[in-house]
């Protein structure tokens, strides 16, 4: 299933251990190469991540989600400048969708983040989903770890323009920001389950369009305090820079709340649980894929199922048996 493509020249030239050394020394090029190894699911990525992991956990991770075109990139651009003015180093991982037809992608989030240019305290990486559902790519949070180890104080993760049920970000970020804009629906829209339940901070962007009061009121109506935190609703106009200070204050307040209440540690454990399970599933599905490629036994099972001698559930159990499954 895996395409055989010769290694890139750049990747071939650098050994993984020297890339990790360079990363710890603050080298952006090494960070970028390591993220590529992770994205391409190269065998060396596991080794690199094992070395990087103990050096992570310092960065505060803020996820941004919301419908396409609502202004997530523009808000992040403003926030990057704001945190840079306080001398905090900022990383960004911005996810855009991969075409289900061609596997290609146009990654355009940098256009809105062009203000930061060559600032040495900023690292922005665009990432395609590569078939992963939920608004993120499989590699997104390992890339966040690379930026954490690079010394970033805060990392913003921008999901693909998410609809109503892409909520994975909330299980991964320390702070989740849900961005909405006026004139996108009535009060019942804001009562629906899913994306409007996951925010630690809500933003009504494009408030310069007017009629934002209705959305703010609707959001406040449906919000409930969780674990002693009532999510604030912040009005912004990213292109004009309005509301950015208030938003940054809300992010800082939430970070302080996580520390003071001990919820940061709890979230870390919850996240670890998820990640262990996800990785176990990946290993398992890789084992299944390898086994199914082995051929004969798998072919026999498929024949049995097609001929109704075996049901697909039983065949799956047989496929996972440690000994070679026998055809009937």
């Amino acid at each position: 299933m895996r395409e055989v493509v010769p290694a890139r020249k750049g990747a071939a030239r650098d050994s993984v251990s020297s890339l990790v050394d360079d990363l710890f020394a603050g080298d952006k090029r090494a960070a970028a190469k390591l993220i590529s190894l992770i994205e391409d699911d190269e065998p060396e990525a596991t080794e690199a991540l094992a070395r990087i992991f103990p050096h992570t956990g310092r960065a505060h991770v803020v996820g941004f989600t919301g419908p396409p075109g609502v202004g997530k990139s523009s808000l992040i651009n403003r926030l990057v400048r704001r945190y840079r003015s306080r001398d905090r180093k900022v990383g960004v991982v911005a996810v855009d969708p991969t075409s289900p037809y061609t596997g290609g992608a146009v990654l355009g989030d940098r256009i809105r983040m062009a203000d930061t240019g060559v600032d040495p305290g900023v690292f922005i990486r665009s990432m395609a989903t590569r078939g992963h559902a939920g608004g993120l790519a499989l590699a997104t949070f390992d890339a966040v770890r690379v930026l954490d180890a690079l010394g970033m104080d805060i990392v913003f993760v921008e999901t693909v323009g998410a609809g109503q049920s892409e909520v994975e970000i909330a299980t991964r970020a320390h702070t989740t920001v849900v961005v909405e804009m006026p004139m996108t629906g009535d009060a019942v829209q804001t009562m629906k389950a899913g994306i409007l339940e996951i925010g630690d901070v809500y933003v009504v962007n494009k408030s310069d369009l007017g009629s934002e009061d209705v959305l703010v009121a609707n959001l406040k109506f449906q919000l409930t305090a969780r674990d002693g935190w009532t999510p604030p609703v912040i009005r912004t106009a990213a292109t004009e820079g309005r509301g950015i200070d208030e938003l940054a204050d809300a992010l800082d307040r939430h970070a302080a709340y996580l520390d003071q209440t001990g919820f940061r540690a709890k979230r870390e454990v919850a996240r670890a649980r998820l990640e262990i399970l996800e990785n176990a599933q990946r290993l398992l599905s890789r084992r299944v894929a390898n086994r199914s490629r082995l051929g004969r036994a798998f072919d026999a099972l498929a024949e049995d199922v097609a001929a109704r001698r075996l049901d697909p559930h039983a065949a799956a159990r047989k496929l996972l048996e440690p000994t070679r499954p026998r055809g009937k």
Partner: peptide, 8 residues
Amino acid sequence: GMEVIYTG
């Protein structure tokens, strides 16, 4: 099938 980053 490529990933294209456009920077504006």
